[in-house]
Design a protein around this nucleic acid. Structure first.
Lengths: 153, 153
DNA sequence: ATAAATATTTTGGTATGCCTAAACTTGTAA
DNA sequence: TTACAAGTTTAGGCATACCAAAATATTTAT
């Protein structure tokens, strides 16, 4: 079953709220997603019909196994993107927001490449690669700080 | 006036088609966007009402100055993202597709950072930075190819 | 010039995802 | 324990963006 991006948003929100409160209630979700409770109820009923969560009127909701799997995979994509943006010196709050936008429809291949790039940075034998430092400086000042070293490499 | 992502898609499509044919016709757009002509007509009328293009029934459409400005700015964002993905070793066709998805809602700050990163790569004194070569190899083989050099830097 | 083919628009309908207002539950405090 | 406040759901509506089918306009071929 092919999930819509908004459905993924809800599942991710439910996951995050449940992590703290055990279950997610209509009002929590409405606040988290910046919409009205009535709209939340409607979507929860749809997601329940698809077997992605347990819904009983007037109680909160809890993700099903399937729903949780989806939520986790969305969150992983989200974190991947956010981490990339972090390395590209995007301020954390903006990286967070933009990761939300990108997390849904990117090709799995793109996500894999983003991950590889992150791992390349993190696991490089010299573990904070010098070129990343150089990029940070370039991003702030517009100046290349690596003239001599670059000649050598 | 705040434009919707779908409106931006149409303007971009019209721009691309006009570039080749002088103007964009309903059927061209329907094909380009993968939807039916009836839907195109509807949207063209909306965009005309917003002053983004010239619409006369049964002729094609041509972007207004304002419409062209929007199209160019969308295309620039698109190209920026596509270029980044290229450096991250995402295959060209997938980079193209995913740039279409991301081009709309990213924060201007994120776009600026992506551009800086691209310029950092392109304008580095040593103009194909060695670390990018190393990433390419890492992306293909999973192995770091830079052990000794990294020690030195 | 006119009929046939092609292109475009109009009309009426669908799904998504949101809203407000009203109705209904639930929990709590008097 | 009952009444009220807070939370939730239902009902009716709206905007977007699509579709199919029917109506209309344009182009092309004879």
């Amino acid at each position: 079953m092919e999930l819509k991006r908004r459905e993924e948003d809800y599942l991710e929100a439910i996951y995050e709220i449940s992590k703290r409160k055990g279950k997610a209630r209509t009002t929590d979700l409405a606040e988290y997603l910046g919409i009205k409770p009535a709209s939340v109820t409607e979507m929860l009923q749809k997601l329940a019909a698809k077997g992605l969560l347990e819904y009983h009127r007037y109680s909160g909701v809890v993700l099903s196994k399937k729903g949780e799997e989806v939520a986790l995979s969305v969150r992983e994509r989200h974190d991947t993107i956010r981490e990339l943006l972090k390395y590209l010196q995007v301020p954390p709050d903006i990286a967070q927001r933009d990761a939300c936008i990108m997390e849904h429809n990117l090709s799995p291949i793109t996500i894999i490449q983003l991950k590889k790039f992150i791992n390349f940075i993190k696991n490089c034998p010299k573990n904070a690669p010098i070129w990343l430092e150089h990029f940070k400086k370039y991003s702030e000042t517009g100046e290349f700080d690596c003239r001599e070293e670059c000649e050598k490499i």
